[in-house]
Design a binder for these strands. Structure first.
Length: 668
DNA sequence: AGGTGAGCATTTTTT
DNA sequence: ATGCTCACCT
């Protein structure tokens, strides 16, 4: 009954989408049209229409989206029903599937998951081993090629005679030897499992009656295939939600054709368009509509909103990037002062991370709080990685990468000579490094000095392994005392240059242990479960904290899905937006969509700036206004020039006078 | 084992 | 301008 009331709140198109519950369904949800609301309402509706909640699967891309979805479902349906719904990311869905059937693929079910740096480390090693003297291969290039190949669905290298092919093959073999998968493997192997093993496929097809996919325009080939494999019958209940106009991840494998040609993959679907926007003003939406209609391949949508009185979109020409930063920051300061707004209402959007620098300087100068979204992650910090490596080496003795990371951290007299020997022996005997190290024949072969060190190192790992595996063990205490006794904490202090650095790193470790403790309280999956979550959900902390307050500085990509009352979009110049690289790569449409995403983030006001001069890689270069600025021209968009405004008498233009005041106020 | 300097590239990012 | 990698040096 609760749901019936909620459905009454939806607009007619939303209602149509929510109540269409059988057969393939494509919901084209424009920016700010209440997409999440439709998805969650639909889940509530399904439950009300007697779909068992455990038969509902909702897949997202990010953990954040999955979490938000769970929360919103919980607010619509009874707690036990909400809990029974599966709302997770593609990758965590794959981990679930793989943990249940890994043996079929020749992996043990406690396989470990390699993150980017594990992957890079292994690949470097493999390249060094595989390449002949006169050959070389950049590991980053290899990484992206291998990833691309995997996402094309190639299980094995197409051509092993090339260096890349050989590296791919060896890399894959080595992963398997280490009982590990990289992020791409999670998808590749799941698809392989479901393709090759009918009983596994049937089991998982029967697991869900209703499948929903969020941000469908971002799915790649494999993700589409996974959805197809999980879909049951000829007329499967697959509901995908997305917006072709917001497809901005083509460069990392997203196939916009998945949504453009949805009918090809799921015949005769119901299709609904959500075009009523609840976020922005008419001026902003008109600009966005004018821009995006220049793209050829699209479903076609026109955003509109129930007439709100609208401030025009400002397009401002700036002499250089320095003034741009000054102007943007002082305008934000002025606006928040005159309208008494919190800093959180403001965001500055840009194409490249490097552009945040000048803004940060300016914000710091004026003591304005800000946060930069997408900096270095907590989990990239060395001490955090070390701790995770210790835990992984304990839980998965086959994880060579983890073991190698911590084998001599802190220094315990196991040098590169011993490691090298262990590596070659383990490769020869096809067993893990940890196992190799424990073999008497190995110990007798390595140096007299390191042998006892190795033995005692393995023993200490073994002791901790037994301790943490004891049901009800207090992981927090066990692990922190382990770090002390093995000398890690001491080493950390030694390595740090300043007391402050040590304090930071140590508190990172404490935070990490705190996470373990909290995990233990809410889950029964033990340390293995914790490691899975860490590997798949590295940003949990930052999301949870969300305490960072202030003006948001964010890239256009990272801004997708967010909204801010007042947005400044900076650097709307040729070669930057569209990026020069995209011109040579022929991805102008995607740049246009990126601009579109930026525009549609704004709720009340939007100011777009472009500079004549911009400092790039050291030297100043002349820039032209972005071609997209021509495309948004029309009613509700006003162009102005910073220098002209500044030269006008104060009463001529309200903006200019206000701006001057605040400029004077803040620069004194 | 660890530190230093030359050389080099430099869009966007999740899991 | 800057930061990162790799090679070479102490």
């Amino acid at each position: 009954m609760i749901t019936k009331l909620r459905i009454f709140d939806l607009n007619p198109e939303q209602q149509d989408a929510v109540t269409c519950i059988s057969g393939p369904l494509l919901i084209l949800a424009g920016a700010g049209t209440g997409k999440t609301r439709v998805i969650t309402s639909r889940i509530a509706y399904l439950i009300e229409e007697l779909t068992p909640p455990e038969k509902i699967l909702a897949v997202t891309f990010t953990n954040k989206a999955a979490r938000e979805m769970k929360e919103r479902i919980a607010s619509l349906v009874p707690p036990d029903a909400a809990k029974a719904v599966t709302a997770c990311t593609f990758h965590s869905l794959c981990v679930r599937i793989l943990r249940s059937h890994a043996q079929l693929l020749g992996y043990k079910k406690n396989f470990s998951i390699f993150d980017d740096s594990d992957q890079a480390g292994l690949l470097k090693k493999v390249i060094a081993r595989t390449a002949a003297k006169d050959e070389s291969l950049d590991h980053k290039v290899a990484l992206s090629l291998i990833s691309k190949a995997k996402n094309q669905g190639w299980n094995a290298p197409p051509d092993q005679t090339t260096l890349l092919g050989a590296v791919y093959q060896n890399y894959q073999d080595e992963l398997k030897l280490q009982n590990a998968m990289d992020f791409d493997d999670l998808l590749v192997q799941t698809v392989r499992l479901l393709n090759e093993f009918p009983e596994a496929r049937e089991q998982w097809q029967n697991r869900y009656d209703q499948i929903m996919v969020d941000e469908f325009q971002d799915t790649n080939r494999l993700q589409l295939e996974l959805v197809s494999l999980l879909a049951k019958g000829l007329n499967p209940n697959v509901c995908v939600v997305g917006d072709d106009d917001q497809s901005i991840y083509g460069w990392r494998g997203a196939e916009i054709s998945n949504i453009l040609e949805f009918e090809k993959h799921f015949p005769s679907p119901s299709i609904f368009k959500l075009e009523q926007n609840y976020r922005s003003t008419t001026a902003i939406l008109d600009a966005a509509n004018r821009l995006i209609r220049n793209n050829k391949n699209r479903r076609g949508k026109r955003l509109w909103c129930a007439g709100k009185e609208a401030a025009p979109v400002q397009v401002m020409a700036m002499p250089s990037d320095v003034e741009e930063a000054e102007f943007v920051v002082s305008e934000i300061a002025a606006q928040r002062e005159s309208e008494k707004l919190p800093w959180e209402h403001f965001a500055v959007l840009f194409r490249m991370n490097a552009q945040s620098r000048l803004l940060e300087n300016e914000l710091r100068r004026l003591r304005i709080p800000y946060r930069v979204v997408g900096g270095k992650s907590f989990y990239d910090r060395r001490e955090v990685k070390d701790l995770l490596a210790y835990l992984s080496a304990i839980m998965n003795p086959d994880d060579d990468q983890a073991l190698l990371r911590i084998i001599n951290t802190p220094p315990r007299g196991i040098g590169p000579t011993s490691v090298e020997l262990a590596l070659s022996e383990s490769a020869a005997s096809k067993c893990s490094v940890q196992e190799t190290l424990s073999k008497p024949e190995f110990l007798s072969r390595c140096s007299r000095k390191s042998a006892p060190n190795i033995t005692s190192f393995l023993e200490s790992l073994q002791t901790l392994r037994i301790q943490v595996s004891t049901p009800g063990a207090d992981l927090f205490t066990l692990i922190s005392s382990f770090l002390d006794t093995c000398g890690y904490s001491e080493d950390l202090r030694r390595v740090c240059k300043t007391e402050e650095e040590f304090f930071n790193r140590e508190s990172n470790l404490r935070d990490m242990l705190g996470l373990i403790q909290r995990y233990q309280q809410r889950s029964t999956d033990g340390l293995q479960g914790f490691l899975d979550e860490m590997n798949l959900d590295r940003d949990r902390q930052e999301d949870e904290e969300d305490s960072a307050r202030g003006v948001t500085l964010i890239t256009l990509h990272a801004a997708k899905g967010l909204e801010f009352p007042h947005v400044h979009l900076i650097g709307a110049e040729e070669a930057l937006l569209p990026h020069s690289r995209s011109l040579s790569e022929g991805t102008l449409d995607e740049e246009r969509r990126l601009f579109y995403v930026g525009i549609t983030r704004a709720m009340k006001t939007l100011t777009i700036t472009h500079c004549q001069n911009r400092k790039k890689y050291g030297s100043t270069e002349l820039s032209l206004p972005s071609r997209f600025l021509k495309e948004i021209e029309g009613t509700g968009v006003v162009q102005s020039n910073y220098e002209e405004i500044m030269n006008q008498p104060a009463d001529e233009d309200f903006m200019a006078s206000e701006f001057e005041k605040f400029r004077a106020k803040f620069s004194s």
